[in-house]
Every structure is written in C-alpha cells, then in structure tokens.
C-alpha cells in the first residue's frame, strides 16, 4: 500500500492557478523526485502535502487516512518528517540537543517542567547522528556547523520523529556537488533500511537521476510526465521545457 496518496490537488493564488489537478502516490522505501522549472508549482505542491498551505481542491492521504488541510504540526504528528530548502534547525542548541528535541516531541515528553533535558534519549540521538555521520559533532553548537552538516542534521531531526514519509524540499540546495550525492545516497540508504517513503524536489538533475526511483515532472502547475530516469530523459515534452528554460543540470 502507498504511504502517501495525492489526488487531484489544486491551488490558486489570486486567480492564478499554481497547481492544478495533480495526483501521485509514494510507496514505502521509494524515493520520488518532483522536478520542474522555477514556478512550476513544486513548492506549492510540497507545502500542501506538508500542511503549510491548504489546497483548494483534492485530497492527501497518509497511509489511507486523509490529512488534507491539517496543520503542519498535526501532519508531523502523523509521521511525516520534513527538511527545508533553507535549513531550519535550533540554533541555540547543540547538535545532539536538536535531535533530542525531535525524540522528546515524538514521545510526547515536551510538557515536562522539572527533569532536565540533558542526557535524555541521548543514546538514541547519538545513534541517529551516527547514521548521518555527525556523531563526532554532537557536542558542538549548531550555529558553527558547515552547511552540508546542517543538512545532515536536518535529516537526523526528521528521522527522530520515526517518520513514514519524508518530505525534502531542495535537500541539496547550497551544497557542493560532491556533498550532494553523498547526502542523497545517505537518504537512499536510510529510506531502504527503514522503509520510509521519500518525496523530494531537486534542481540538480544528476542527483535526481542518481537516487530517485521515480520522477514526476511539473510544468505550470500540472503533471506532464511520470516515470523512471530513463523514460523521463527520453520524454520530448520534458526535454522541451528544460532546453527551453536552459536549466538542464547543476541547479541554480
């Protein structure tokens, strides 16, 4: 059964349709890439799944249950992890504490006023950090991390929620090319190991073709192609969009 099923999703801003009648599904362990030129409606789509935007029409089902129009918090609670295009971490905490926060929230231990955080779920947090290769930096302040490490930290935080679905908005934006592949292969591995469904948007076509199982192509808010890397590469409609806009690979 699919983890995420999206049916007929639509959204307009001031009469301009940003997303129109988009449907797709993601299976456990599958990595689905959502691509398209700037302004194609990727982020709008993403934010409707993640709860930042309420769709005008359509439905979003998570493991068969509707989550359409729920708040980001409620969606997170139902097992959706998320990373952002511009990293969002807790800058006044150490790397480990960032992950501890996700673990505490997941275990519903936030509303406690007495027992200190220090040491709570520390081993589990360290294990997650080890999975993303940050174990050596656990004690450091988040603010001093390199950008690539921040991205990996976000992944660890997202995993702290034991998600069924991971939403990654431009996960490699701002990273050096070598780091990009590393991060996405790490994601690939985690998705397979944990059976997490991953939906991500990405500018870097090398990354997309390298790690995704399937690719969705959006243009002007509608879905124009869907398939594996080879079929998308061969798709004339997709080629036209990308050659037309001049953005073939390498991001912006």
């Amino acid at each position: 059964m699919s983890v995420l099923v999206v049916q007929g999703l639509s959204k307009s801003f001031g009469g301009v349709q940003a997303v129109g009648d988009v449907s797709f599904a993601v299976a456990p362990g599958e990595m689905l890439a959502l691509i398209g030129p700037n302004g194609a409606g990727k982020s709008t789509c993403f934010n409707m799944v993640g709860g930042q935007l309420v769709p005008d029409a359509g439905s979003v089902l998570l493991e068969g249950k509707p989550i359409t129009g729920l708040s980001p918090r409620a969606i997170a609670r139902r097992g959706v992890g998320r990373t952002f295009q511009i990293t969002a971490t807790f800058g006044s905490m150490t790397v480990r504490e960032n992950v501890q926060m996700a673990l505490l929230s997941h275990r519903r231990e936030i509303w406690q006023f007495w027992r200190p955080v220090a040491g709570r779920h520390a081993e589990e947090a360290d294990a997650l950090l080890a999975q993303v290769g940050l174990e050596a930096q656990a004690e450091r302040a988040t603010g001093v991390l390199a950008y690539g490490d921040l991205k990996r930290l976000e992944l660890a935080i997202a995993l702290g929620n034991a998600p069924r679905l991971l939403l990654m908005d431009e996960p490699t934006a701002g990273m050096a090319p070598a780091e990009r592949v590393g991060l996405m292969q790490l994601t690939r591995r985690l998705a397979t190991e944990r059976g997490v469904a991953v939906l991500f948007t990405e500018h870097d076509m090398d990354v997309v073709f390298d790690v995704s199982d399937r690719i969705l192509v959006l243009n002007r808010g509608t879905l124009i192609a869907e398939g594996d890397g080879a079929s998308i590469r061969a798709n004339p409609a997709v080629r036209e969009i990308y050659l037309g806009t001049g953005a073939t690979s390498g991001g912006h």
């Binding site: 980001p72 998320r82 969002a88 971490t89 800058g91 501890q100 926060m101 997941h106 929620n161």
Partner: peptide
C-alpha cells in the same frame, strides 16, 4: 527547550510536532 526551539525556528518546531 521546546520554547527555545519554537523561537529558534517556528517552522522546524512545527515540523517535529
């Protein structure tokens, strides 16, 4: 910690529930 998390990044805080 959660309060501080909400201040540091409301977006991130919501996305961990």
């Amino acid at each position: 910690y959660a309060l501080r998390a909400a201040r540091d990044s409301a977006m991130r805080a919501q996305s961990i529930g």
